[in-house]
Design a protein around this nucleic acid. Structure first.
Lengths: 338, 338
DNA sequence: AATACTTACAAAATCGATTTAGCACAGGTG
DNA sequence: CACCTGTGCTAAATCGATTTTGTAAGTATT
């Protein structure tokens, strides 16, 4: 009834525990174990169905074979796609994944990282939230393998993987221009994340390139800490005051959804009265009539690349912390809102 | 630079490791450690910031302080709400949670459970999928703490927590009747889960109670294994053939979303031409004009109850496997689709 | 005064693996 | 024949905690 241990297997095979361990870890040759003995051991292992006690292995080797995935919100659709790819990739490589969400709370972010540290994860995949800078610096100092996703901190040279935000917005703007829209509004939020800055930079840049004057009035920056209702009201007011706009660019899917609701309330028909485009796709954008044009993030690509960067760090832990920064291109999905 | 161990703390405090352990585990009294010594130890611990090595504790005590949460799909909104509550509850109780999704794959479900077993989780929270019966039976045989959520297997007496499906549908049906709808269709899917059976039973029961004849033609059972497109087509055909219906009851939110799309394509205005109501809420139902009436699951309640049932099992592991089956009431959220 | 019993800790075993060091034997060398 | 070198394995240390057993000193008992 009790769990089978290495010792049991050794006894059953008539050898020492260490010998079994060598064979199981592929060091039979190196330790010059006779093929005969090795085969005997393997047959006993297979017949008995022995499996090493992960915890014991972990304690001894210091490797938990576990990765920590820290995301902003576990309910977000970004996370959902991310998690799937990361988990299957990780499993393929013999790693487990534990997920944690910061729930947009820097305090909690730090605590989570520490918690994962206690849990002894071998590496971290993090979508950084404002306020996590120090924790991430600490991880780097401790030479813990880390890969950031979706965002990064300019001052910190950690490997990261994200969508090419500038290029993505450009795609969207070009599309709008092509469709004849010129009076394009932009809705963002006051979170100090690099990707938002980048997106806005691309927006103004795109206008400039088209010789369309930038109008401050056309840009709305919502307050992250305001309530949903509050923001909705602000957004409605913004749209009302800019009735002459022919299109709105939403910087995140959260904002886009808010926009949908606002335009619904104002009974603005899309795209007739006003077009809408959003950075980052969402189920709703596909379903909501008439379907919202979006810039889709290459989430699978990001996940896969992130894992591979992390593995590179895990493999040669003594090797130099390769400074790998990757930006993958997004994809424009044209629906009927533009 | 290295990690602080119990031994280090002991040396720093001038006592034996065992003494430190006793103090840290609240056995100071029991082991008659002088307050003086205990305080000294505590101060050293606090100043040094020592934290026990989880893996070592795990190995020695056999308790991983980790729970396994197995859900159908990690991207589902049901999971999202569930995970949040469970994680915070678990953390409060000193437990970690590892998530796994079966991705609607019985094979994978079994493997997952085994994987978690290797990982040595202390208990399981599972939303069962067809085909996991045997794995769950095995867990029970091994006296592993298990709580099922959202569904259960009639033959297996494991504790479970779910919404009162019968009552939920009744709420919805009563609401439809109240609004004057009589020709009510029902859309379900051919997955052999008890909650679906229960919902359908409630639907027919409700009709009978109102003396409305049950018409087989009004019930559509989609094929789970068909593609989304395929199902959409089937659903559209079903609606076309039942143009005289005045309302449709969707048995799951997946079906409801499909319904939205189908009705959108057929340009059926809701609720004018046809009303819609769905079991289980979803973001889209709130946003999609005109807003879909739903029966909301008490997800937080389910999560909280499930955790508490699991903890009860974890506390007194020798105690009898209390056969606890809980059904929590759902809530009707009236929106404009009815 | 000898024995028993507390008190207050320390020492050592233990969890289940990995890994280093060691040991017995065979064969080759000077 | 003493000495060295491979072979092929075993013994023992180790990871960092918890828990059982031991033990010296002080107090109480007879």
């Amino acid at each position: 009834m009790k769990r089978l241990t290495l010792k049991d297997v050794a006894r059953m095979a008539g050898v020492a525990p260490s010998t079994v361990s060598f064979v199981l870890n592929g060091k039979a040759k190196q330790m010059r174990i006779r093929d005969e003995v090795a085969q005997k051991i393997m047959s006993v292992v297979n017949q008995s169905g022995y499996e090493p006690h992960r915890v014991a292995v972990n304690l001894r080797t210091g490797q938990s074979k576990t990765l920590g995935l820290i995301v902003e919100s576990i309910s977000g659709s970004f996370f959902a796609s991310l998690a799937r790819t990361i988990e299957t990739e990780a499993e393929r490589l013999g790693y487990n994944v534990v997920y944690c969400s910061t729930e947009n709370n820097a305090e909690k972010g730090g605590e989570l990282i520490r918690m994962l540290g206690r849990q002894m994860v071998d590496g971290y995949l993090i979508t950084p939230a404002p306020g996590m800078e120090n924790e991430i610096r600490r991880l780097l100092q401790m030479h813990k393998p880390v890969v950031l996703m979706d965002s990064y901190f300019p001052g910190i040279k950690a490997p990261y993987v994200l969508i090419d935000n500038f290029h993505g917005v450009q795609l969207g703007m070009d599309h709008l221009f092509e469709r004849g829209y010129r009076k394009i509004g932009y809705v963002t939020v006051d979170v100090s994340l690099i990707q938002l800055a980048e997106r806005q930079r691309s927006y103004t840049q795109a206008l400039k390139k088209k010789d369309i004057p930038f109008r401050k009035k056309r840009v709305l920056e919502l307050n992250y800490h305001d309530s949903r209702e509050q923001n909705l009201a602000t957004l409605e007011a913004f749209i009302q005051e800019n009735r002459d706009m022919d299109a709105i660019f939403f910087a995140t899917n959260y904002l886009g959804i808010l926009g949908l609701e606002a335009m619904g309330r104002l009974k603005i028909s899309m795209p007739k009265q006003m077009a809408a485009i959003c950075f980052d796709d969402h189920d709703i954008f596909r379903l909501y009539p008439p379907g919202i044009t979006v810039i889709e993030q290459p989430i699978e690509g990001i996940a896969a690349k992130a894992i591979s960067l992390l593995m590179k760090q895990l493999d040669k832990q003594s090797g130099p912390i390769k400074e790998s920064q990757v930006a993958l291109p997004g994809r424009l999905i044209v629906r009927s809102s533009t």
